[in-house]
Amino acid sequence: MTLTELLRPTEATAFVDAVRRRDPRLFPGAAAGTTPLDMAGFEAMLGALHHAHEGVLHLARGGDRRSLPPGLVDADGMLDLRQVRRAFEDGDTLYLTKAHRLSPSLADLCRGIELDLAAHGVDLREPVGAHVFATPPAAQGFGPHRDGHGSLVVQLEGRKTWGVEDGNGPQRPCGVPAEDWARLPKREFVLEAGDVLYVPEYRGHAARTGTVSSLHLTIRLFPLRWRDVLDEIAAALPGLNAPVPHARTADPDALAAGLADLIGSPEVRTALPGLLSGLSARRTARRAVLADGGLGERSGLADIDENTWLARARGTDCRVTADDVSATIHFPGGAVRGPIGVLAAFEHVAGVRLLRAADLPGALPSGATVDVVRRLVAEGLLRRARSAEIDGPVR
């Protein structure tokens, strides 16, 4: 699933604009018919958890988040679902962190959002992740607070009313005292199943249920900030390790002028492109490989020929680099390097979702194209295409 599919019929560009401007935005019915998770599926996830009390599942009520009490986990480290249900019925919100690690569909959704944001020019400082919140009727799990990430809230079941700060407060994650929250101008959003709400990072917010319970998914987004760029390159910038002249430390204006001169110096300007090139490569690389049947692919490599249809594995994007003698195709979890003659073939693989060895361009020796695709299958970038993919669009 991609961001475009999640927000239909809204264009993804509308969401991207909200992210860039840090504006809250409601997308009514955008996820209607899209059910990455329901309450039964959520309970099934809980039933499969091991040692959920070790920072995975929390309880929250009236602004107080707490770890699971010992009685909710048995001697084998599994949840006692009867006790979990009782806590929920008594008014506790169930807060499941890192749900994308437990659900293939949520992992797919998070990766699809990463790829769509990258395609729209939005770089992230951390991978997209998903948390799940189940809240009973007439309850509020968390008090007003500001998060250090943007939140794409997908209402899965029930109804929940959100108050979102109308304006920018402190640019840091923090709680908002009740007396301050009462005075802040706010916008109210009532989310029904299928609605999607974007809450920008550092924008105060709180939510509560009414007469019915709620299940919602919070997809956490970490847009790249200028400070993230500085944090990564500061250690390698020429001149920043030089001592500050003593006379300037007592004079803020002189200190500011000296730092501005240093950052604007020719030495720093010369070094920046190379440093930022490496930063870009690290930030755009997806680190995790999604499950897509790769365990069974290696045993059949010899059966792949030039007419075997292959597809890129789920959630993979590619980047091709080259020098005078070699070309490299980079993808989540790895890279494959070959002689410069494979450059055109690698670029073709990076630009399509479905291919055959016979389709690869370039002046490769006879049989070399099959060797290329077999290697990419072995490394997990490609897999055999399924019949539905050959006849229809590849996801």
Rank of each mutant, 00 (worst) to 15 (best):
L49D: 05
L49E: 12
H50M: 06
H50F: 06
H53C: 01
G55Q: 11
G55I: 06
G55Y: 09
G55S: 11
L57N: 02
L57M: 10
L59M: 12
L59T: 01
A60D: 09
G62H: 11
G62F: 09
G63L: 04
G63E: 08
G63N: 11
R65E: 15
R65W: 04
R66Y: 03
R66M: 14
R66A: 13
L68M: 11
L68K: 04
L68W: 03
P69G: 10
P69E: 13
P70Y: 09
P70A: 14
D74Y: 11
A75V: 13
D76H: 13
D76T: 11
D76Y: 10
G77D: 12
G77Y: 10
M78G: 11
M78C: 10
L79Y: 07
L79C: 06
D80C: 10
R82E: 15
R82Y: 03
Q83A: 15
Q83S: 13
R85Y: 09
R86G: 00
R86Q: 15
E89R: 13
D90N: 09
D90E: 15
G91V: 00
G91Q: 06
L94M: 09
L94C: 07
L94D: 01
L96P: 03
L96V: 07
L96F: 09
T97F: 03
H100L: 02
H100G: 00
H100M: 11
L102S: 10
L102R: 14
L102G: 02
S103N: 11
L106S: 00
L106R: 05
A107C: 06
A107V: 01
D108A: 14
D108E: 15
D108W: 10
L109E: 02
R111E: 08
I113W: 02
I113F: 06
E114H: 06
D116S: 08
D116L: 01
L117G: 00
A118I: 04
A118C: 04
A118D: 13
G121F: 10
V122Y: 08
V122I: 15
D123I: 08
D123N: 07
L124N: 05
L124M: 14
R125Q: 12
R125E: 12
R125D: 10
E126A: 14
P127I: 02
P127C: 04
V128K: 00
V128T: 12
G129D: 14
G129L: 12
A130V: 09
F133L: 15
F133C: 03
A134P: 02
T135R: 06
T135E: 03
P136I: 01
A138N: 12
A139K: 00
Q140T: 14
Q140M: 15
Q140C: 11
G141K: 01
F142A: 11
G143M: 05
G143S: 15
R146A: 13
D147N: 08
G148E: 07
G148I: 06
H149Q: 11
H149E: 08
G150D: 15
S151K: 01
Q155F: 05
Q155M: 12
L156W: 05
L156K: 05
L156Q: 15
R159T: 12
R159W: 02
R159N: 07
R159S: 10
K160Q: 13
T161V: 14
T161M: 04
W162C: 00
G163S: 15
V164D: 01
E165W: 05
E165I: 03
D166F: 07
G169Y: 06
Q171C: 05
Q171L: 14
G175F: 07
V176G: 00
V176E: 02
V176C: 03
